[in-house]
């Protein structure tokens, strides 16, 4: 992975789409449209890898040799961490995801590649991935009732840490996005909470 001598590989820019363990055919269908694929190609991405989970809609595979976007997909993979590491942009669902442990691993072994883009959504994992410094598009699943997760996505989008899209507007979001304008997300700090708890319990301040 990432051999310096191989210039062809260096130019490989992967878009990783993940729906986690949920079923989100609307997102898979949306990225499989010509509009979205053309837009991604225009933005300089060369590969599209889709993790489609329990969905039933199979996108069309393509090897990309004719200069079009190379498309590949799989349902689940134990090595999702590898896909994340090599991805330049990740388009994710805003539901639940079960691969947090993999992302946790990337963080603990410090294999963070800052140039790449990524995103998995679940309040815990979105921050873990944002902290990898990978640009991220979060796609909101409108089929879920009381989707309070979109609250967070919208707030973070307002603060320019990520892009928030709907399956129908994904095409527009990709064409309008400027990855450079995203602001890095600074890790949170638990010191204020700890301070308040300690003071409340009568422990001396230090």
């Amino acid at each position: 992975m990432g051999d310096a001598g191989d210039s062809a590989k260096q130019e490989k820019k992967v878009v990783f789409v993940t729906v986690g363990t949920t079923l989100f055919d609307a997102l898979v269908r949306a990225v499989d449209t010509n509009g979205v694929k053309q837009e991604l190609l225009r933005k300089g991405y060369t590969h599209l890898v889709i993790q489609m989970g329990r969905g039933s809609y199979n996108p069309t595979k393509c090897d990309g040799e004719d200069g079009s976007l190379a498309v590949d997909y799989f349902t689940f993979s134990p090595s999702i961490a590898d896909h994340l590491r090599s991805a330049s942009l990740v388009i994710s669902h805003a539901g639940k995801l079960l691969f947090i442990f993999d992302i946790w691993c990337i963080l603990t072994i410090n294999l963070v590649i800052v140039v790449l883009h990524c995103g998995l959504f679940r309040s815990g994992s979105i921050f873990e991935t944002l902290q990898l410094g990978k640009p991220l598009i979060v796609v909101v699943n409108e089929d879920l009732m009381d989707n309070h997760q979109s609250e967070l996505a919208e707030e973070l989008a307002e603060r320019k840490h990520l892009y928030c899209a709907h399956p129908q507007t994904l095409h527009q979001t990709i064409s309008d996005m400027n990855v450079e304008s995203l602001l890095p997300y600074l890790s949170g700090d638990a010191t204020p909470v700890a301070k308040l708890i300690n003071t409340f319990l009568g422990f001396p301040d230090d």
Binding site: I100, S123, G124, S125, F127, V193, A194, I197
Partner: peptide, 20 residues
């Protein structure tokens, strides 16, 4: 669970620095 636990661990990382 998941995200909730991750947040709690972050708090504990600071809170448990002292033996309180």
């Amino acid at each position: 669970s998941g995200g909730h636990t991750a947040e709690m661990i972050n708090v504990l990382n600071v809170l448990l620095l002292k033996d309180r």
